[in-house]
Design a protein around this nucleic acid. Structure first.
Length: 291
DNA sequence: CTGGTCTCCTGATCGC
DNA sequence: TGCGATCAGGAGACCA
């Protein structure tokens, strides 16, 4: 479920805590969630080094739905939340019951720069469905090689950039928006939301959308993602920030999940279809195929 | 190049 | 109360 807003909100909530922190140790409860992009072996020593044991965290970054942690030795760890992933900071006793399940990687850490936190704490990667994972990179250069295969970041997408990206493909525009190599960060929810807000039919050929509407779409994507980020993600069910706090439930979706309900703009009942296996909701009146 | 389908995986929900 | 079917969808593999 996490799309760009959830990932960016997570990054912002983690950053003040983890930058400057030292990773003392790591427990890998499920090795398969860790991918080593630059290494040859998978010994415990290699794994621990890739996960930053002994290192200080010096920064965070994000491209689309991928978040990166930068280590002092120049290595990077990319976190992908997939559908159900979370990264939380834990202090005190570990959780019991269902919350204790699906915890795949747990770092022990402490913050020499935070005098208010003299005790070690834990950084926990949890992901019940395991569509997410961690990928370790040896250098910024290797990370950039991968990130450069992604399209421009959706949070600040410029109208001209979007126009460029969409002009290259004749797929339905929603398919193009979901393709991370075209535009990085938009998933199923915000694809429907931004197309509805911009009045574009999801099946409209990407390259055939008029210039003015592409600019409108870019502006709606920025507005909707920006607002959702500030509100802490849309929070359908699984998203939690660094402290286990759900996003504000105030976010109202105008299209997503509202098939059969009246369009908030014109009152026409919203229609549903499946595109690439994804539930798609749109207003047959506001989102006209012919425009 | 393109869409369609399948796969990975668990948990929530629904009908019976 | 239980149980099986269905759905949720990010991302990549594979096929037509």
């Amino acid at each position: 479920m996490p799309e760009l807003p959830e990932v960016e909100h997570l990054r912002r909530s983690l950053e003040p805590w983890i930058v400057g922190a030292q990773l003392i140790d790591v427990r890998v409860l499920r090795k398969s969630v860790v991918t080593l992009a630059s290494e040859t072996g998978r010994s415990n020593a290699v794994l621990r080094a890739a996960l930053g044991v002994g290192e200080t965290i010096v920064g965070t970054d994000r491209r689309g739905k991928q978040m990166a942690i930068a280590f002092a030795n120049g290595r990077f760890l990319v976190i992908q939340l997939g559908m159900t992933g979370s990264v939380t900071i834990e202090r005190g006793a570990p959780p019991r019951g269902v919350e204790a399940r699906h915890r795949h990687v747990i770092w022990n850490s402490y913050s020499p720069a935070l005098p208010s936190e003299p005790e070690p704490w834990r950084l926990v990667f949890r992901d019940p469905r395991r569509f997410g994972g961690l990928t370790a990179y040896h250098s910024r250069e290797v990370l950039d090689r991968v990130w450069n295969t992604l399209g421009p970041d959706a949070l600040n997408i410029a109208g001209d950039e979007l126009l460029d990206a969409l002009a290259r493909t004749r797929r339905p525009i929603k398919s193009a928006l979901l393709d991370q190599s075209v535009l990085a960060g938009v998933g199923n929810i915000y694809a429907d939301e931004s197309l509805h807000a911009a009045g574009i039919h999801p099946l409209q050929t990407a390259s055939a959308v008029p210039t003015a509407q592409v600019h409108r779409l870019a502006s709606e994507i920025r507005r909707i993602l920006g607002r959702a980020t500030a509100e802490g993600g849309s929070t359908l069910r699984d998203y939690r920030d660094a402290f286990g706090k759900p996003g504000n439930a105030v976010q109202v979706h105008a299209a997503y999940g509202r098939e059969g309900q009246p369009c908030l703009r014109c009152g026409t009942n919203l229609l549903g279809l499946r595109l690439q296996g994804r539930a798609t909701v749109f207003c047959p009146r506001c989102q006209d195929l012919s425009t």
